[in-house]
């Protein structure tokens, strides 16, 4: 797909400013009051998260449900605001920017969500869905550009005339990816993009994300509960537990020799074919030894 390769990214210099930087980000929610006399209980979704994603990096965030990874994503995308701390995207502190000054972020950072059925408007044709980010940002949305994007994600050009319900789960996720790529973002944030997909289709979508990130020189932030998927896709990974990042490192290292007790438990709990065929039982999944067999 030669046409899409247009923006040349900032070179991978070591001193280039990070694509995303979080400094001591805290996010507290208050639950509804349960009593007239007591104050509303608070939920500490993020408790001081520090994070740096370099330009052009494939960065994974792993954690189980409730660990705060979705809150973190929403804050990076400025869909939610931090209670304290700073969020810096491409050198701009977005922590307190009003929505009208976030246009650069809306163009440069795009999201792909887990469930492609609920993130695509069922009443819009696919070509309108893909063109919508362009229209919203006041760019001309040409049919040419939409066809380019459809081709880039491996869908035929006539797919544009159809509606989301006419596609399978994997194809819908391709549509979500095409929509995300429409405004030529530099950062792609994917929230569990393959969790709802079948194994054979998951491999296709992972390959597609991988290829597009390479070809368009994107910075990828990939959130998943599945460490083995993250290991395949990402260079570096942050492991989250209870609102904090407990371990960061190169994915291979974290997977092979986890340091934090939580990461050790997480890694040993992942069933793999390799381990099972060499005789691992379900009891071995519970073992908290760091080294996976």
């Amino acid at each position: 797909m030669p046409e899409i390769r247009e923006h040349i990214p900032a070179a991978h210099q070591p001193d280039a400013e990070p694509a995303i930087k979080l400094i001591d980000v805290v996010r507290n929610y208050t639950r509804p009051r349960t009593s007239l006399l007591r104050s509303a209980p608070a939920v500490h979704a993020l408790r001081g998260v520090n994070l740096e994603v370099k330009q052009g990096e494939r960065f994974g965030i792993v954690g189980e449900s409730g660990c705060g990874k979705s809150t973190l994503l929403r804050i990076i995308a400025a869909l939610d605001r931090a209670s304290s701390g700073h969020v810096i995207v491409e050198g701009t502190d977005i922590t307190h920017l009003p929505e009208r000054r976030l246009r650069f972020l809306r163009e440069n950072l795009q999201l792909v969500f887990q469930d492609p059925m609920s993130s695509l408007d069922p009443r819009m044709r696919v070509r309108d869905i893909i063109a919508e980010p362009l229209v919203v940002q006041g760019h001309p949305a040409s049919g040419q550009r939409v066809r380019e994007l459809l081709e880039a994600v491996g869908l035929s050009a006539d797919a544009g005339d159809r509606y989301p319900h006419q596609f399978s789960g994997g194809q819908r996720q391709r549509i979500s990816i095409a929509r995300a790529l429409a405004p030529r973002p530099r950062i792609l944030v994917a929230d569990e993009p393959v969790s709802a997909l079948d194994v054979s289709v998951r491999a296709q979508v992972l390959n597609l994300i991988s290829d597009l990130v390479d070809e368009l020189n994107l910075t990828l932030v990939f959130v998943s509960h599945d460490l083995s998927v993250v290991k395949h896709v990402c260079d570096r990974v942050a492991v989250m537990n209870a609102g904090q990042i407990v371990e960061t490192g190169y994915t291979g290292d974290v997977y092979a020799a986890p340091q934090h007790p939580y990461t050790q438990r997480l890694v040993s709990a992942i069933p793999t074919l390799h381990r099972a065929l060499s005789g691992a039982t379900t009891t071995d999944l519970l073992a908290t030894k760091g080294e996976p067999a």
Binding site: Q171, V199, S200, R202, A203, N207, S210, S228, K231, L273
Partner: peptide
């Protein structure tokens, strides 16, 4: 089996063409 093999050192995963 090939499509679910995430342990592979290949950058690209082996896929089954098409959809279910």
């Amino acid at each position: 089996l090939a499509a679910s093999d995430l342990e592979t050192n290949e950058r690209r995963l082996t896929t089954i063409p098409g959809n279910v």
